[in-house]
Structures are given as C-alpha cells and as structure tokens.
C-alpha cells in the first residue's frame, strides 16, 4: 500500500524544484489531493464493486422481462407500466410508507421525553443511562422481533395477562398478525436510532436561553414550545430519517408479525426474487422504492428548510 502511494510523490518531488511560485503551490495542492484520492481508492473501489455496479445492473434488469426460466433482455418499460397500472403495487407501496411513517412518528414521540429526561434531568452517570438505553439494540434483531411474537401472540403475555386479570373475556386476535403488531415492534426495535440524535440535539441547547425565557415570564409549557422544541428540531429530523428509511424496506418484522394485512414492499420484493421467480419485476420494485424514498426524503428536507426560513 505505502509503496504504491509513495510513487506519485517521488515523481512530483523530482519535478517540483523546476517550478516556482504559483505553479509550485498549485502543484503541491494537486499532489495533496492526488494523495488523498490514492488513500481513498481501496475504499472507493469496494464501494464501486458493491454499490455502483450492482445498481447499474439492477437498473438494467428492471427493463428486462421474464421469459420462462430465463430473461428477455430487450429493453422495455413493461415492468414499470405494470407497477404504475396495477393497483396492488401502489397499495403495497402506500401501506409500507404508512406503516413505517406511523412507526417513525410513534418512536420519535415516545423517545423524545426519554431523551429530554437524560439531557436535562440526569446529572450524574449520563453515560451509563445512554449505554442502558442503547444496550438492547446490540442483541439479535431477529430474536427481538420474535420476542414480540411471544408477547402479542394468541397465548402471549398480554392476552394471558389480561385474561388472568379478567379485563377481557377471550384472547384479542388483533394483536398479532396485524399492522399494529408491525408498528409496535418496529418502534421498539428502532428506539435507539431516535434516542441518540434527540439526546444530542437537546444536550446542545444553551441552558441560558431557557433561563432567559423563564425570567421573561414564560411558564414551563410555553418555554418548551417556544425554545426547547424548535431548537431540538434537527434531532427530530435526523431521527425521523434514520428510522423511516430502513423500516420502509424491512423484511423480518412484517414477515413474522404482519400477517396478510401487514405485509410490506420488502416482503413483495423478496417474493419476486424467491418463490415467484420474477427477478426483473423485483428489480423494478427496488428501483421504484428507492425513487419514492428519495422523493419523500427530498420533500421532507425542502419542507424543513421552508419552515426554518419562516421561523428565522
């Protein structure tokens, strides 16, 4: 590694004394960036093989069609037209965004008071609290999701507990295999991704601003809505992104807990690459999902920028 990285330097060193003034600095500058690129090149090469090449191929494959067990490689927009015209795809996409949208909002709402508590009311052992809140997320995602199946199931913890307490006459069937189950599980599984950004943005808030608001006569509620909440918005936005994007494509949770009404686009993509064996369709759905996520992300960014301008 070092041997090859030194090569351009030596050649540059050999030429450098012949140049003067501005040309020399320009040369040095160029040499510096050249070295930087050189060091970056192994990482970028991996990313090119692992991201760029597969995506170009995925895009290409989305214009193919299935032909028995093989592909018809004549480029066509047939798959995209199907996704556009057949209502099932739109409904599935809508449901995925609905489920992960609700899960995102729920996670942020539930985690905000917790992050607020650690940022403002914990004075000793803050680190311990943060570790305590993020520790569960280092355990197997698969088993965490499975644990919720045990809790929400027909003979699960909630049903048997409520039955024993006499709150219900017979087990609730809506708990497992529903969108609610998927939303609860996703919110639990992704809580750390909300807590950390929320905590960071709340911790950053200058305490003297809060004192000023209080001194000027704001009560706790007004103070929260006028100072704390607006100043913590970057954390809220970051948390929303970090949860919304991966959960729209989640596979495990809807597969284990979703039931027929809780299946999401990730499960459908897997079907195309697995049992249905229509890879071009799966590729098309992946591309469409990515475009939708990009569009929603950009719209969200644009709206926050507009909101920030209006506030300022």
């Amino acid at each position: 590694m070092t041997d090859t990285s030194l090569l351009p330097d030596q050649t540059a060193d050999a030429i450098a004394p012949r140049r003067r003034g501005a040309r020399l600095t320009a040369m040095l500058h160029r040499r510096e960036s050249l070295r930087g690129y050189l060091f970056m090149s192994p990482t970028l090469a991996i990313m090119a093989v692992g991201i760029v090449a597969p995506f170009i191929l995925l895009l290409t494959m989305s214009t193919w069609t299935r032909q028995g067990f093989d592909f018809d490689t004549t480029p066509t927009f047939a798959n995209y037209l199907r996704v556009w015209s057949e209502p099932i795809f739109g409904a599935l996409m809508q449901r995925s965004f609905w489920i992960s949208g609700v899960a995102t909002v729920a996670t942020v709402l539930v985690c905000y008071p917790m992050a607020y508590f650690v940022a403002f009311h914990v004075h000793k052992h803050k680190m311990l609290w943060l570790i305590l809140m993020t520790l569960p997320f280092w355990t197997s995602y698969l088993l965490r999701v499975f644990a919720w199946k045990v809790i929400l199931g027909y003979e699960g913890v909630i049903n048997s507990g409520f039955l024993a307490l006499g709150w219900i006459e017979e087990p609730l069937k809506v708990l497992l295999y529903s969108q609610t189950a998927v939303i609860i599980t996703l919110a639990h599984a992704w809580a750390a991704f909300a807590i950390l950004p929320l905590y960071v943005s709340l911790e950053k808030i200058d305490r003297s601003l809060l004192e000023a608001a209080t001194d000027l006569g704001d009560g706790p509620v007004r103070r929260f809505f006028r100072i704390t909440l607006p100043l913590s918005m970057p954390g809220v936005i970051a948390a929303s992104f970090l949860i919304f994007i991966p959960t729209t494509g989640d596979y495990i949770t809807p597969a284990l807990l979703g039931g027929p009404n809780g299946q999401m686009i990730g499960n459908f993509i897997q079907l195309q690459f697995g049992p249905v064996n229509n890879w071009p369709m799966g590729a098309t759905l992946s591309i469409v999902l990515m475009l939708w996520i990009a569009a929603i992300g950009l719209a969200f960014l644009y709206l926050t920028r507009v909101a920030r301008k209006r506030l300022a």
Partner: peptide, 9 residues
C-alpha cells in the same frame, strides 16, 4: 438506502 435493495442488487 434500505438493506433489502443492496441485498437484491
């Protein structure tokens, strides 16, 4: 980007 897209790609 959702992991499933990287997986299939």
């Amino acid at each position: 980007i959702p992991g499933i897209i990287f997986g299939v790609a």
